[in-house]
Design a protein around this nucleic acid. Structure first.
Length: 465
RNA sequence: UGCCCGAUAGCUCAGUGGCAGAGCAGGUGACUGUUAAUCACUUGGUCGUAGGUUCGACCCCUACUCGGGCAGCCA
């Protein structure tokens, strides 16, 4: 007999004389003449109630069906006589496949998120993490759906790379050299020409530069894959390994880029609300009471657009005392970003046109708007509770100005010869952005720590699973 | 990397310079429809590690380890 998933059994429209289910015991409640078991198979948040009568030959198995045990049930799907559920299963055959004894760490009690991180191999069996990872799966699908339906092509940019998208930032080194005894040059330095690729290589920090190659061929592309930062960050919103979505659009300027970012974020929220309603309700009840209201609010309101120069004025006229003062030319600090999105505008804010000196070399220099040639066409999308969720820009398509940007950032043109070629041959205005997938999940679920929206978090000092 | 907080039963947490506590989980029993069932009884401890102060340290001090928060860096 084919297995029925719990989510399908719960959605039944009529009783079923013969049904077969498999899953894990969440809780068992014994009475004198029968036992109730709540069966969960991960297909949805809710479990299905199983009733096993004490007169059943298999009733002897029930005492071994503790929380966490894997079981299978043949029986009838009937309307429940009790409150709290529409359907339940009256067991006819009940088997315990794998017991879970008293050492099973996941109790039917509240656990701290910190404890659950230590049992990352078991936490997907909890309500919270089951919901988080169902939403994660659905949103990954929605990412592809959004771009595919807009005629964007999905490009697989390399994980191992010899280029550094920012010219800064710590990267993980990829090598097959014997770290204890590497080959040396005559000067005594490690000889990377003897390494696997004949040069220094790293785990990618961004697929953007390679994405630009494909945007200047296929017009609209996106990447969606893992990225790596070897930064020693100890915060609730940084991980050493995370997933990023990076669209790149040819014949597009910063305005178009900001519009795409807003449409994309709203699409993901709308999709989660439509397809993960039960899970979002759970988050709203147990994680963040304001979640659903906030998501609705974000869907309804246009995102505020605010130039960097305006933002600095707002911050200086706020009357607030800042830990870090703000002068034109300074980077906006977390406290400033949070004030803009959480207190001043109280909605997502796109800050654009940042000072040239504090942004990456590939961002397009603004001319024709004050202060002339001092800003670049960059934008950051800030959301309440998280801060920066998207960073993007129009790219510098003019060869001479791109070279000047590289000189400003002390980058060697030789390492970027292929990137410069894109400007030598058929260059076009183009723009793109990067969305941190985990940060988006934090925003959609209300879960406050990035370690809890990725299956196996990689943070400094932690790579157990 | 800097600053701050924490570590007590399997889990969540109280606790006081002088006999180590509760709830849940586990065990035993009760209960004819439960909903993290309920009720009674019950097992369970190197108080993170190493030093120090003290007649006496889970408690005070120092270092270390681990976890967490904030900041920086960013997505």
């Amino acid at each position: 007999m084919p297995r029925t998933l719990v989510k399908d059994a719960l959605a039944a429209t009529a009783p079923n004389e013969a049904i077969f289910l498999q899953g894990w015991v969440r809780t068992r409640r014994d009475a004198k003449a029968f036992s109730f078991i709540e069966l969960n198979d991960g297909s949805c948040l809710k479990g299905l109630q199983i009733i096993i009568d004490a007169t059943l030959p298999d009733y002897a198995n029930v005492s071994r069906a503790n929380t966490g045990a894997s079981v299978e049930v043949h029986g009838k799907l009937v309307e429940s006589k009790g409150q709290g559920q529409k359907w339940e299963v009256v067991a006819e055959k009940f088997t315990v496949l794998g017991e879970a004894d008293a050492t099973y760490p996941l109790q039917k009690k509240g656990h701290t998120l910190e404890f659950l991180r230590e049992i990352a191999h078991l936490r997907p069996r909890s309500n919270l993490f089951g919901a988080v990872f169902r939403v994660r799966s659905r949103l990954a699908y929605a990412v592809h759906q959004f771009f595919q339906e807009k005629d964007f092509y999905y490009v697989h940019t390399p994980i191992i790379t010899a280029s550094d998208a920012e010219g800064a930032g710590d990267m993980f080194r990829v090598t097959t050299l014997d770290v204890g005894n590497p080959p040396k040059t005559e000067e005594g330095a490690v000889d990377s020409t003897k390494d696997f690729f004949g040069k220094k290589t790293f785990l990618t920090v961004s697929g953007q530069l390679e994405g630009e190659i494909f945007a200047t061929a296929l017009s609209n592309i996106y990447t969606f894959g893992p990225t790596f930062r070897a930064e020693n960050s100890h915060t609730s919103r940084h991980a050493a390994e995370f997933w990023m979505i990076e669209p790149e659009v040819a014949f597009c300027d910063l305005q178009g880029d900001m519009a795409l970012a807003e449409e994309f974020v709203k699409h993901l929220i709308r999709d989660a609300k439509e397809h993960c309603a039960a899970d979002l309700e759970f988050f709203s009840k147990f994680v963040d009471k304001d979640l659903l209201a906030r998501l609705d609010f974000v869907l309804e309101k246009p995102f505020v657009r605010c130039s960097y120069t305006e933002a600095v004025e707002i911050l200086n006229q706020s009357g607030k005392t800042w830990e870090h003062s703000v002068a034109w030319g300074d980077n906006l600090q977390s406290e400033h970003e949070r004030y803009l999105t959480e207190e001043h505008f109280k909605c997502p804010v796109t800050v654009y046109n940042y000072p040239r000196a504090i942004k990456a070399f590939y961002m397009r220099v603004n001319d024709g708007c004050a202060p002339d040639r001092q800003t670049v066409a960059a934008m950051d999308l800030l959301v309440p509770g998280i801060g920066e969720i998207i960073g993007g820009s129009q790219r510098e398509e003019r060869l001479d100005l791109l070279k000047a940007g590289m000189a400003l950032h002390h980058l060697d043109e030789k390492n970027y010869w292929w990137y410069l070629d894109l400007r030598r041959y058929g260059t076009v205005p183009h723009a793109g952005f990067g969305l941190g997938f985990e940060r988006m999940l934090m925003f959609v679920t209300g879960v406050a720590n990035i370690r809890d929206v990725i299956p196996f978090a990689r943070t400094p000092g932690t790579a157990e699973f």
